[in-house]
Design a protein around this nucleic acid. Sequence first.
DNA 1: ATGTCGGTTAAGTGTGTACTTAACTATCAC
DNA 2: GTGATAGTTAAGTACACACTTAACCGACAT
Lengths: 113, 113
Amino acid sequence: MTAAIDTLFAALADPTRRVMIERLSRGPASVSELAEPHAMSLPAVLQHLQVLESSGLVTSQKTGRIRTCRIESKALRRAEDWIAARRATWEGRLDRLGDFLADGAGDRDETTT
Amino acid sequence: MTAAIDTLFAALADPTRRVMIERLSRGPASVSELAEPHAMSLPAVLQHLQVLESSGLVTSQKTGRIRTCRIESKALRRAEDWIAARRATWEGRLDRLGDFLADGAGDRDETTT
DNA sequence: ATGTCGGTTAAGTGTGTACTTAACTATCAC
DNA sequence: GTGATAGTTAAGTACACACTTAACCGACAT
């Protein structure tokens, strides 16, 4: 389970891959559409795509000679949730520390929800 | 700004560092407290800590001979928000596709047009 | 059937990352 | 002071990652 989150964040850590994700968040795309904004060879794009797929962030299917890729929001949510959980623990702890932190005494980071 | 998100996700991609973050989400800790659960040398831990600090996820201050580290929830939120934005775009797009998706046609093969 | 388009595989290269050990500094206890 | 404790620096190694070029395969168009 830990390894899965590993590959998730690792996939998101690369700017090329994040641009791909951004593109895919606006709708499915072919491999060459994904490649278009990037100044790199197609095989390089393919490798990024493989990383995205093995992380579960993207799925794809081939029809004829074009492969259509789409984003997998479940995987995005898994990453999001991991972060949210840690933030909640920390911010919950801050809350428990006392209200005097909440109204200005803290080091300007508290989220007063 | 893109490079900042880079280092953020890269920092989160390592299991050792995520365990450190989990520890710090429960409260501040010293370097050796952070090191304790990991079967690795202290210098290795220090290097992970440097990655966490330069990503903005952790800050630390030295008092006497112990360095106290604490989590920086703002940075966590930056990562969380990036993901949330992409997911929102994608899921917003799905919504616009029509309600028939929302009540059961769900995860399998949307965009049947 | 021949050519082009979209994608894929294989193999190699340079760079970065995660460690290691060894040695060293600064504090605190006595 | 002496010695232990907490952390730090430096230098080196092994492996992973982001690319590259070259060659290739399977649609589709003419």
